[in-house]
Design a protein around this nucleic acid. Structure first.
Lengths: 351, 351
DNA sequence: ATGAAAGCGCTAACAC
DNA sequence: GTGTTAGCGCTTTCAT
């Protein structure tokens, strides 16, 4: 411990305030005094005013907090999350803020959120009932959510996930697909991997995923098909591996009986499905058509290139940071999304 | 502002300590008291103990700080940095730490570093003379650097960049290349784009890049060639675009006169060079051989797949976090690196 | 140009 | 179980 302002003050024979000023407003000090103070600090090994003391006194921290709905490393695995954080980073940098990543899930989350020394929070795709949000609100800190409106009266930046998913499904239906399967990421936090019934679909607290399922369902039912006939394959994570496993399961169950259309609720899962299809020798898009959602950079570069619904997560990150840092209220802002047809979809059988 | 412990204490007719305990050790309170306190808090809209007050009192923050040597958004652009941060995140999560990203460059950097409320710092590829490091040391906080030993007695996790670069160059030389060019990222912070002379090469404060140039040079001279004949093309950033522009410049100057070997000091730059070559119709590897350094995930997926020198930035991130969080001293730890031959290199002319 | 007073909000240690 | 004491390290305001 390098000591305190008082220690330096004593050693330099000045008041604590003078030492404080030496660091904060050196030009206000007589050059001789300044030098004496700095000299004393050097001799004591004093490292400058404590950051926490300063924050306490000033009432601000210069930090923007990002609440992650997953383990910390996941944020760096998901290209969508990376794009979003890059957007946050741009606006944080413009305001000289640092960016703090906080796991808002797991046993230590409550403490981490309660103890986070930040000026404002952005929550990325929180669950509806995420207790971290209540904590943030109780702390009276600005909060913006991204992905889905979790709480009334909390500003939210997102797309219309229902419409985006509907658009994906409509694309497959318009191509003539009637045999469909859905691949989705964790609906309930119980690690389930396998088909998800209506109970899970409706019971999910994850707004984004629930909305996407709802969108798929709308399109399916409007086309006169039965939602119950659509297998909804759930995996606990959003990784290529999860997508691969889900694709395998779906193709095991349905692939042999003719062309299949797969609705993957994220591009990352879709990329895994593509790989599963490829490795078992199914032709994409002739035997298996796959449509993703998000349009992450990898989607355009995959083989075949992934048909998907585009959203701009970078722009959403920027807006979240701007609104959180400015404590700008305002309602849900839905960014646009649009279908991007590439090579992973075609009429059933390639016809 | 939601008020303080004292406000709640007054309202509940108890002492401040009791309110504190209601939040920190509820089991130690008589249920009736607890309820009365919580009720008072609710009525006052008290949001729980202040995070800053707590940090001040406790003397710890639960945060690991990452010092970035660039603007904040860059960290999310560079796949190497992302892998490194993922490693940090794994170990941070294991210790219930949050991860704070701090721009240690630019006008506001000094304040940001001095005011960062963290328990320890990791600095990613800092410049030798980075003033942020001195600040950290003055604050007596644990510090680990990654990428290059910047300061004596500061633990450092890295690879032997000289050896790694030498290996890349030796590969090209062994294939028979005698016409070589180097593409490197910012050597001096002046935005220069173009050929870099020996002055810039030696004057660079960026250890990683200087070491890599030194490694290339060693191999070249050991092969009996003159380093002066090797064009060193510098770009201010480490992006595909920078690599593209550098590749273009190099090919403009040297490409027409026969097969060329390009030493790109990062994979990201190499990927840009590959694209530049492709777009001007040069055949890779026949007309232009390209070798990168880092082995980011994209390197294996490019067309043609990139020959490069592998290092495990994820593992280095983990070790940095472990050592910073544990305040583990110890000297420079050099992780291994190894040449990975893929399809972007061949003997000159493809022979 | 320098200093004194007055907290910012909290908790460890120890009484009661 | 609950309260008292004694700070954690700093800066704003106002005086001198």
């Amino acid at each position: 411990m390098p000591g305190t302002l008082d220690d330096v003050a004593r050693a330099a024979g000045v008041s604590r305030m003078t030492v404080s000023n030496a660091y904060n407003r050196p030009e206000k000090l007589a050059p001789a005094t300044l030098e004496r103070v700095l000299q004393a600090a050097r001799e004591l090994g004093y490292g400058g005013p404590s950051a926490v003391g300063r924050s306490l006194r000033r009432g601000r921290t210069g930090v923007l907090g990002l609440l992650l709905n997953d383990a910390l490393p996941y944020a760096f695995t998901d290209p969508g999350a990376v794009a979003f954080m890059r957007g946050l980073a741009v606006e944080a940098a413009a305001r000289d803020l640092s960016l703090q990543l906080i796991a808002a899930t797991g046993p230590a989350a409550a403490r981490a959120v309660a103890d986070a020394v930040v000026d404002a929070f952005v929550a990325l795709a929180p669950a509806d009932d995420d207790p971290a949000l209540a904590t943030v609100l109780a702390r009276r800190l600005p909060l913006v959510t991204a992905g889905a409106p979790a709480l009334p009266d909390v500003p939210c930046v997102t797309i219309d996930n229902v419409a985006a998913a509907r658009r994906a499904a409509e694309h497959l239906l318009a191509l003539g697909h009637t045999r469909l399967a859905v691949v989705t990421w964790r609906l309930l936090p119980d690690g389930h991997a396998g088909p998800a019934g209506l109970d899970r679909q409706h019971g999910s607290a994850f707004g984004v995923r629930r909305d996407r399922l709802a969108g798929y369902r709308q399109a399916v039912e409007r086309a006169g098909l039965a939602w119950e006939d659509v297998r909804v394959e759930e995996r606990p994570g959003n990784s290529r591996e999860d997508g691969y496993a889900a694709g395998d399961a779906v193709l095991d169950a349905l692939g042999a009986r003719g062309p299949l259309g797969v609705l993957a609720s994220t591009d990352v899962l879709a990329l895994g499905v593509l790989q599963a299809a490829r490795e078992r020798g199914a032709r994409v898009p002739e035997d298996v058509s796959v449509v993703g959602l998000d349009d992450v950079p990898e989607a355009a570069a995959s083989t075949p290139a992934l048909t998907t619904v585009h959203q701009d997560l970078f722009a959403q990150g920027r807006e979240c940071a701007r609104r959180a840092a400015g404590a700008l209220p305002g309602p849900v802002h839905r960014h646009p999304s649009r279908l991007v047809v590439r090579a992973s979809t075609a009429p059933p059988g390639g016809g």
